[in-house]
Design a binder for these strands. Structure first.
Lengths: 235, 235
DNA sequence: AATTGTAGGATTGTTGACAATCCTACAAAA
DNA sequence: TTTTGTAGGATTGTCAACAATCCTACAATT
């Protein structure tokens, strides 16, 4: 008599609106839906093969999340970040990453995460040297998200996910696209090393340096086509 | 010929789902809807005098916001905070308030806000001496929200609003209700004074002290009916 | 007694139709 | 020429009905 099957995995319940919300979120984040584009309910419902009801419910979720913007009776649009938005995003990202780093250092819990961050930095190094700028950018996002996730705060991670999404929305219009610099990985390696040392002041100082200044980033993006922040033709 | 009327006030567009979301949010925050209570769509739609569609849309907003919890095919419930949640909430609140205070101090922008905080502390003092504990608690919330708002970051304020709402949801079950201590206002006066001085290290240290430890708060709430954290009969 | 199967009722999820709103184009009036 | 009014079409907002799912109670089976 074989042992009874005992699954450790609970069945996940998800209705149409949940599935649609996930897909829409992905479409926004990957650029399939561009900033300021209108989401036409009739067309979208048709293309998802559902009625407008669950589509509207899904959109309400993303509106509350900040990825979409609703104008009652006019429609729903992909959110578009202004320069003031990006400045705010950088401020909040800094607050979050600072809190996460501080938590990791003060609880002497930097070993595992700094190894993980170094591994991501290695992959980033390969990507930038192969001029795969999009991949480099994705790994950059992953690096920072990993740092925040390592602090173990559900809410901090959720908030960070939102502001990271908003950073992605800002990338091409305000920040000049993917950063095209082979120094990208070095900076990240350096931070991982400093974090490993467990010195709070150094860690926080390096984090400050790492962030850069959103105003300067935007100015460079506006003024130079040869800027290191440019949408890659490889993409 | 009288001058043409030129209103500075744009007309606000709000549909049913927006209005319902606001009302539901208020009901959750004021305790009209208790943690873990189920929201029955049919009844609620009837009592709001609308169909279930906009009600569902409103609920999606609050679900994404974290005030409600959805179990597909079973219903929507008012979120209930666990002890782990409250610990996390305190962590995020600390991160946010720390970032706000730091911003205010480093930009030498503490004059106006410290005056405002002192005024709130005065009102708090009156409330606690009149044993209006609920009022004291509300003013406590207002104090902290004002501090964060003064930093001028839309996203920081929005995130804070959410974790503050979650703190309210935790108040009676995990924290023993309103804090009943006449020291409440003193602590807040003290913080306002230190903020006014503009010394970053002192400000951040005082903030740390001010927060207290969520674990200790919960332990006290569990172990003592004469605790200073108890639901007021005056309420 | 414990387990499985079934039916009914309550509630949630989805759909399609109708109502409401907005925008655009065009005509009429000043 | 400019301003105002109107109609039509497109899109969004809401509604009521039907479908799907879950839960509970009870009966049948082991």
């Amino acid at each position: 008599m074989p042992p009874a099957i005992k699954s450790q995995q609970r069945v996940s319940r998800m209705n149409l609106s949940g599935q649609i919300a996930e897909q829409l979120r992905e479409d926004v984040l990957t650029g399939a839906l561009l900033p300021n584009a209108q989401l036409n309910e009739k067309e979208l419902a048709l293309s998802f093969g559902v009625s407008r009801g669950p589509l509207r419910e899904a959109m309400q979720r993303l509106i509350q999340e900040g990825l979409l913007r609703s104008e009652p009776h006019r429609g729903v649009f992909v959110a578009e970040m202004s320069e003031a938005d990006l400045t705010d995003i950088y401020f909040v990202r800094a607050a979050i990453e600072t809190a996460a780093a501080k938590q990791l250092v003060t609880s002497r819990n930097t070993e595992t995460i700094s190894s993980q961050l170094s591994r991501i930095s290695e992959k980033m190094d390969k990507a930038v040297h192969a001029k795969r700028w999009k991949d480099g950018s994705e790994l950059d996002f992953e690096f920072h998200r990993s740092l925040v996730d390592a602090a173990g705060s559900k809410r901090l991670s959720k908030t960070y996910m939102t502001v990271q999404a908003e950073t992605r929305l800002s990338l091409h219009r305000l920040m000049g696209g993917y950063r095209r610099s082979e120094e990208l990985a070095e900076e990240h390696f350096r931070f991982a090393d400093i974090l490993k040392n467990g010195d709070l002041t150094e860690t926080l100082d390096e984090l400050d340096r790492h962030f850069g200044d959103p105003v300067a980033i935007m100015r460079r993006a506006r003024h130079s086509d040869s800027s290191e922040y440019r949408k890659s033709s490889i993409e």
